[in-house]
Design a binder for these strands. Structure first.
Lengths: 339, 339
DNA sequence: CTGTTAGCGCCTTCAG
DNA sequence: CTGAAGGCGCTAACAG
């Protein structure tokens, strides 16, 4: 492995000049620039990145926290972030918290050790109080998940509005017994969606009974489990709002297995507008999130924070949400409702 | 940010002793060890990782090349690798090649710059000849994709066998006109699967006509496109072997849109055993790959190669593949076949 | 425009 | 068992 010294020696110049060429500084005579370039070429030289990191006090790495990649929402988010990061010559380190507080804190150490220049959190497992101390070591940008106590920049969606339009849609379809099913209990995203749904219900003088609330639902399997619970209820809901298309798909799969028709016997609406929504029978109504846009903005914002070194201020950027109506909520004749 | 010097000063000891404590060397008296530990605690000291990397000549980072994350096969592979890496205190850098040769080569530079200790390639875009020069800079381990010219360790599956058992199954169901649909043309994985299918056909004195071969099929949309092409054929195949469940799902979705029944009019078999196989109607028959196992072994192998510094030898590890028969290929009565 | 010098923070011989 | 010293490879003042 050749070093900057080898290049300098071969070119008959000093390290500084070579360094200036590497970093394309202005004041280098064209002749010497060429000599350096030739030497670099000849030695197949590339700067050692650990040395650069140590010297510059920045690594060009960003850690991205996700709960787990198999959730398509997060893999899509990460895919888009990686694309945006790659354009700016940042590399992304994947950190799966697996919904664990310990793992999240362990990964947060990356920032303290200066292994990464910043952290993007797409989900939050700990109380903000536990995360807050890390902001002094570098920028933390929130994307998707958020926290009222967080004094950091965040990119988010109006989840309450999302829950609200989904709820209004179900109500417009004539439903009065609507269930709600969401991810983690600590998640503000889930909480706000639920609030939105409640608000919609309230406008119709309805409410969300505790028995109609299902938590910790993330996957297809969870959806199947949720349906099994619904099935056994004396008074079943006629519609379910689910905080994820996978869960919605699971509910539908469960329903079909038990001869329960969707949407006639049970309407289901998801969230995210994943591919699966149009493959299922019936197609799944959902709320579309601008994932690519959020991801791009997050990386742009992070790059700016890293470069400006100003990042301890709360800034909120919001993007629009869109209701997508498909078959899983649309039936002309609603099932008879016995009280 | 406190440094090792600050700790040494506060503890009234030398940097070397502190360093020995950090790296848990044996010969340090318990008393001094405690003093160092106390000082570290008090200063909330953590070693700077850039400095460690520069000194130790290793970063604890592994780059993982995938084509794109939205393909669930690769996000699942990455999820499992991240879990395995995290156990060993390695971090993973995501590198999406987006099927581009240029991006792949650009990411390969990470190894030359010593930004990562090794590279795991789950897909290969360039000729091996273009990748080979990089092995002198650090270990490259192949996982899933492979190349006959590659003198490196690799974890792979017997893709030919996979194509073979899928083909045999379709033949056993009475099909004689079988189409094949796969990803990239440079992919050995795709090539071997096709060979396996051809071998199965040959055993029945059948063959695979060029018109029944569809390349560059990766996604649901590609599957829909493939069906559109099949639909317009004078002599349609009665079965399709697809090198991915997403593509299979797309074919089925396309078929259903056009009133073509699966499996009666067209049998479809996928590959991977993704979640989607059991959500579709009909359920999709497929070939299951031991993704988690492959991922774990890959990281274990990579860690070993990094630590032993021996990695320029060809080693092949193979894992078993399993046929999963579901509804998309099973019908008692096959459609009448007109010649 | 170019070279000299001094570290970035850590690990690791080498003496003691 | 402990400390001193050198250097990993690079950048950034500071002179000239």
């Amino acid at each position: 492995m050749s070093t900057i010294d080898d290049v300098a020696k071969l070119a008959g110049l000093s390290k500084s000049t070579v360094s200036r060429v590497i970093n394309s500084y202005p004041h280098v005579s064209e002749a010497k620039r060429q000599r350096v370039l030739a030497a670099m070429q000849q030695l197949a030289y590339v700067p050692n990145s650990a040395a650069q990191s140590l010297r510059r006090q920045r690594t060009g790495l960003i850690a991205v926290f996700v709960p787990r990649l198999m959730n398509p929402f997060f893999s899509q988010l990460l895919q888009s972030m990686e694309l945006a990061a790659s354009e700016r010559d940042y590399q992304l380190i994947v950190c799966q918290t697996m919904y664990s507080q310990e793992k999240e804190l362990k990964y947060a150490e990356l920032l303290r050790r200066k292994q990464v220049d910043g952290i993007v959190m797409t989900s939050i497992q700990n109380e903000w109080q536990a995360i807050a101390p890390y902001v002094r070591y570098g920028p933390i940008v929130l994307c998707n998940e958020f926290d009222d106590a967080a004094e950091v920049p965040m990119i988010r969606l109006n989840q309450e509005y999302g829950g609200y339009i989904a709820g209004k849609h179900l109500l417009a379809m004539g439903h009065t017994r609507i269930a709600c099913c969401s991810g983690g209990t600590r998640s503000q995203v889930a909480f706000h969606r639920e609030q939105g749904l409640r608000k919609a219900l309230q406008e119709h003088s309805l409410f969300l009974p505790d028995t109609y609330i299902f938590r910790d639902a993330y996957s297809i399997e969870d959806g199947i489990r949720v349906f099994a619970q619904i099935k056994d209820m004396k008074i079943r809901p006629t519609a379910v709002f689910s905080g994820g298309d996978e869960v919605a798909a699971g509910i539908i799969a469960g329903a079909k297995q038990h001869g329960c028709r969707v949407p006639e016997d049970l309407a289901v609406i998801g969230f995210d507008d994943q591919k699966i929504t149009v493959l299922m029978e019936p197609n799944i109504s959902t709320v579309r999130q601008p994932i690519g846009l959020m991801a791009q903005q997050t990386i742009a914002l992070m790059a700016e924070k890293i470069e400006s070194r100003q990042y301890t201020q709360r800034e909120v950027y919001e993007y629009p949400l869109e209701l997508i109506v498909r078959e899983s909520t649309c039936v002309s004749v609603l099932p008879t409702k016995e009280k």
